[in-house]
Design a protein around this nucleic acid. Sequence first.
DNA 1: CCCATAGTTCAGAACTTCGGAACTAATGGC
DNA 2: GCCATTAGTTCCGAAGTTCTGAACTATGGG
Lengths: 112, 112
Amino acid sequence: MRPLLHPAIEDVRPEAILHALADPVRAAIFARIATAGCVEACSALSSVGDRVIPKSSLSSHFKVLREAGLIRSERRGVEMRNESRCAEVDVRFPGLIAAIMSAYAVRTDPAA
Amino acid sequence: MRPLLHPAIEDVRPEAILHALADPVRAAIFARIATAGCVEACSALSSVGDRVIPKSSLSSHFKVLREAGLIRSERRGVEMRNESRCAEVDVRFPGLIAAIMSAYAVRTDPAA
DNA sequence: CCCATAGTTCAGAACTTCGGAACTAATGGC
DNA sequence: GCCATTAGTTCCGAAGTTCTGAACTATGGG
C-alpha cells in the first residue's frame, strides 16, 4: 500500500479542484467533510442520497479529493480521518470553494 | 447539421459548468470570450498558448461550453458569433465564474 | 456554378471511470 | 501469537469519454 499523497498548497491546481468537484458524488462527500470539519472513516460516507457507493469507488473518490488538495487523510488505527483543507485552499484561491458549494446548494434547493 | 442547443438558465447545472471549466483549454477559450465580450469565429481561438487546437477539437470544446450554459453561439454568415452568458449564470450561481476565473489567474500569475 | 472559408460530424484510437473480487493493514479477543 | 473482524486499497475488465484526422455541410463571393 502506497503512502497517501497530499500536494503542497502551492502545487494545488484549479483544474484539479474543478475536476474533483465536477462529480456530484464527490462534491457531496466533500461537502459533508467540510461541514462536519472532520469525518472519521470513509465508510461513514458510503451512501449519497439513496445511492450506495461501492467501497472501491469510494476509495478512488477520496483519492481524487486528496490529490486535488481538497482533503487531508490520515490513518487513525483501522480507519481514516479525513479533514478538509478549505482554509488553506481559500488562501490560495479566495472564494472558490464557497462559490462551488453554494452553486450546488442552489441546485438542491427546491426554491431554485 | 443539428441546430445549436442552449440550455435555459434554470436548467444549467453546476457540475456541467465545473466540468466545462476543469479543462484548461476550455477555460482559456471561455476567458477570452468573457473578457472580449464577444468573439467572432471559433477559429479566432484556434491556439491556446503555444498549443494549436485542431478544428474538430475546437468544435467540441465550443459544444461543451455551449451545453454547459456558459456561452451562446449564433451563426453570422459563414462564421460563428460566440458571446458569454456570464451575467445570466452569475444571477443563478453568484460569484462562481469570477472565483473560477481568478483561480486560473492565480495559477498563471508568476508571482503566485 | 464553383471555389474558399468556417464549423460539424464520424470513426477509431487512447484514455478514464466504475465496481466486483482479492488483497493489505490494524485491532481486539482468546 | 493467532484468528477473526473491520476499514481501505489494489487490480483488472467492462463501459464510457475524449481526441483528432478525414469527410462532410453551410454560407458567401465572383
